[in-house]
Design a protein around this nucleic acid. Structure first.
Lengths: 217, 217
DNA sequence: GTCTATAATACGATAGAC
DNA sequence: GTCTATCGTATTATAGAC
């Protein structure tokens, strides 16, 4: 919560202690957490303001409305997820390798943003995917579907339904993080989000999925 | 929305048009839907009352508080899920068969209660699993874990981490339904909750999971 | 057992000062 | 660019009639 104070030559426009982009980013960060927890309807602008260290008036100044802020929040992970898969260059790898890489990257992404998955479940169940629809998820899933189709064509993967299987892969990659606050009560002694546990989860997921789609020789 | 009207001999206690148990059940049904959508905090008692066809006063009459109602709502699926797995008699089947049966049953359960899964995600993220902890989920997951351990002992399953894999199986069984309102926008032409599609999802899930855990000969 | 009415509070959004 | 103050509305929970 660093609040920069003016140094140097006192200018004659004394307020504006922070700059616009920084404040906007702080609001989006706080909003992401609040929207993930409560969805569009349940989120409290006051809670977002407090989390960002500003007042609610600032939210309306930068984003016009709660809905405007919500849209901005959803946009960030939608773009990031697409770009991440894009940058893996899955096309240039054998299907089996590509799938492994994608699964590892997806889980690592979830681990880095443990609450972001809930954003989309809230969106689905509270807003019927109205804003999800405006994203680029078709193209994002296409990355995985393409790998699965290629694997079948190459003969390294068995015959399967690429869309259904990509949903199931998504389920494997996300469940642990979305449900973590429940799961942790099942083994209270273990920190289930420690790097070791996440690596273990990742290894198990890769093994399950790869063995699950592989063509039997 | 059937509201029974008194027939026959006019008694001299004219109100109480419905009986207690029926009203209680109606409230829980409506509450389940509302809590699944919005969680404990975001749920509106007015919305629950409207959904149940009664007034908010009735909620407090039967359940004392919003929280009391919430507890009652969570209890039902927790018990049902446990009993369902119990009644499958998984112990008496070869591990591979048992796992297949459990997966089919789990997906069928989700399909029959498409919004119930969100109840638990809301609980995890909004209440940190405070009420989840009071349930019997340890024992419920134990059913699956036992099957996996037995499969390894029998040599039909490869070496794997039973708890991690059971989480991943849960992810496969639930994702499709929790995210359905988003997913449907990916293929707007298909009804992804039709019996045919659910059967297809089930088959793909069983194939993925069984192949994923099987010991290679 | 069920309703109406209402108290007390909390929320989203805006106006206006600085 | 940021804050304080506030309007109008919506929400949880209860009191009391029937």
């Amino acid at each position: 919560m660093v609040r920069s104070t003016r140094s140097k030559l006192s200018s004659n426009k004394p307020r504006q202690v922070r700059d616009a982009e920084a404040t906007k980013a702080q609001i989006i960060d706080a909003a992401e957490e609040e929207f993930a927890k409560h969805g569009l309807n349940g989120a409290r602008t006051e809670a977002i303001a407090k989390g960002a260290g500003i007042t609610t008036a600032m939210i309306y100044y930068y984003f016009q409305s709660k809905e405007g802020l919500y849209k901005a929040v959803l946009q960030r992970p939608a773009i990031e997820m697409y770009q991440m898969l894009q940058q893996l260059n899955l096309d240039q790898l054998p299907a089996e390798f590509a799938l492994k890489k994608a699964v590892r990257a997806a889980i690592a992404y979830e681990a880095a943003h443990p609450q972001r998955g809930m954003l989309w479940f809230q969106e689905a169940n509270q807003t019927q995917g109205k804003y999800f629809k405006q994203g680029n998820w078709q193209e994002t899933f296409a990355h995985i579907i393409k790998v699965l189709e290629r694997g079948m064509a190459e003969g390294s993967f068995r015959q399967l339904d690429p869309l259904m299987i990509s949903m199931q892969i998504a389920g494997v990659c996300t469940f642990y993080f979305n449900a973590h606050e429940n799961i942790k009560h099942l083994t209270p002694d273990v920190d289930r989000l420690s790097p070791e546990m996440i690596e273990r989860y990742t290894t198990e997921a890769v093994n399950l999925i790869l063995a699950g789609v592989r063509q039997q020789k």
